[in-house]
Design a binder for these strands. Sequence first.
DNA 1: CATGGCAATTGAAACGTTTCAGCACGGTGA
DNA 2: TCACCGTGCTGAAACGTTTCAATTGCCATG
Lengths: 344, 344
Amino acid sequence: MNLKEFSRLVGLSQTTVSRALSGYPEVKADTRERVQEAALKYGYHPNRSATGLATGRAGAIGIVFRGSSEFGPHTSEFMGGLGSRLEADEIDILISTVENQEEEHATYRRLAASKRVDAVVVHSPVIKDDRVALLNELGLPFVMHGRTESEQPYAFLDIDNYGAIKRATSHLLDLGHRRIGFINGLKGRTFAEHRDQGFRKALAERAVEPDLALFGNGEFTDEAGYRFMQVFLSNPQPPTAVLAGSMMSALGAMRAIRSTGMMLGRDISLVAHDDVFSYINADNMVPTVSTTRSSIRAAGARVGEFLMQVLSGKKLDDINEVWPVELVLRESTGPAPLQLASVG
Amino acid sequence: MNLKEFSRLVGLSQTTVSRALSGYPEVKADTRERVQEAALKYGYHPNRSATGLATGRAGAIGIVFRGSSEFGPHTSEFMGGLGSRLEADEIDILISTVENQEEEHATYRRLAASKRVDAVVVHSPVIKDDRVALLNELGLPFVMHGRTESEQPYAFLDIDNYGAIKRATSHLLDLGHRRIGFINGLKGRTFAEHRDQGFRKALAERAVEPDLALFGNGEFTDEAGYRFMQVFLSNPQPPTAVLAGSMMSALGAMRAIRSTGMMLGRDISLVAHDDVFSYINADNMVPTVSTTRSSIRAAGARVGEFLMQVLSGKKLDDINEVWPVELVLRESTGPAPLQLASVG
DNA sequence: CATGGCAATTGAAACGTTTCAGCACGGTGA
DNA sequence: TCACCGTGCTGAAACGTTTCAATTGCCATG
């Protein structure tokens, strides 16, 4: 069923039918109604390739995942939010997976040149992310989830990683902790650097010297969390508190803590960053886990909104937000234990 | 840059250029080479909408997610595999999220009518899944991840859920366990029913009566795992072993077990189904967890392969596989404890 | 009663490919 | 020498939309 056939069926020209369906004003109200009913009845939907060719719009936005390993739990949650927003405008999400940076750039070029998507979401940025320049050169609109350093204006949504970790760290310091372990994300990623700065700033404000032996940078997996925590705990002066970058890391860290027989919230404190996964809940842990919390799903939805704004031509400088992060205190944090052992 | 302009640049007709790039044989070898080099140099990529319009192919496959909550860790892993396979043929993945079944059907109709995708992946089937009939009626090719009952032939990839759980249960029975808890997936889903059958069959073979109080059906989340396990443990005759449907459920179940002070692998045994997530590893748990294991990422890649076969016109009856599932024994399983308490 | 203007509609060009049908050219067999 | 064939190329139709420019009635205005 194509437009020609369909418009003959309803007894109107292709032009009028097309306009009726796309909501143009110069069609009489009851004509429009008649057309829309007929479309439903005959199951007519404009061919997307033809529409795309005629309008120059693809009706889809793209996301490129580097190394399919990047496709983790954070991703799914984000995509859920993004999809729920774009669905409203019948915009689809187009996924590409690539193995390395070279391939990634080639993919952006292909997406742009073949006009396969109208815009892309850029995620996991590093401090100076070359994708901003590349995409601008290609003329491919984008919204970044996260931030980077750039002279060129760009649209982004980020959370206040700096403030979140600074606040969490300050709170641990308030509780008397002086040796604090920090399981952070991959080195180079903006969010990890921001968290690092927040952490150091909080320490500096109390004149506490950071100890590099209590820093860990890696993926947010259960395994990495376990490994880092083990290293921290085997330190001659083990930390009395630890910050975990995600609930996954926290699970691993808790496991390491438990296996030493220490009690969380009494012998050692833990604050984890919680991206709010439906299937893992800080409130359900034993003990419940204190968190810095920000819904990554909500972020996905907001990025979808930003994409629509970018495509509508809104000024890029006006399309950005940095969301504050909640600090939720639960049972896993408590006053620093008296360090009798380390006095001797 | 379009074909007309590009072909003028290389001094050939549009026809020849198009053929050179698409690998048709009636082009001289060095002409082809010259064209391909030029394409790279000028960054020419055929417009996807135009190609789609001319060929009738969309160059994309679709997946519909019901309630964006379905977008969980299993999904991401599966998509990673799927993407890595489809990437090879420059086929993109198009994602739609819908809120309910009605909307889902409408989306399939839209995808089919607007020729937006060449095929779809159908996942999480129920015993009698109406999507087979719908998609056949719409003429939209598909590959199912899982199985359903259908008179019409269809392509699918599934794992042997029945055999996996039967084997795991038999093993627990061998170890002397007689009361076994079972945290299963959502009622109605084929995989959950198959597992249920495998479980009951194993019990029946040893003439052990199943106890409905030790059955749980729900989502595979940490929370649900915890809740079910708590219920099991508060039973007057608590189980001495438990099967968990996923690593997520297992995490929750382990938490519940731990909070009673029981020791896993000695006081109570656990076997979990492991879909092989990169960020949660059964080998890293304390104690390490015995699992029935099958890589959902590998399944994604295989489904991608099947999609290509379906599109190439291969007979549907010849496109299906049921993968065997490994049983990996680790520390979380051990002989049933002597039930001194229950003797009295 | 002619004129202009407005509302509703239409014909046809344009979008950028693929591919059918056809053409030029040189070589081969009779 | 001529018909025939295969190789390598080209012109133009077709795909299904959107949208510009034009057309038809009809009503109000002077």
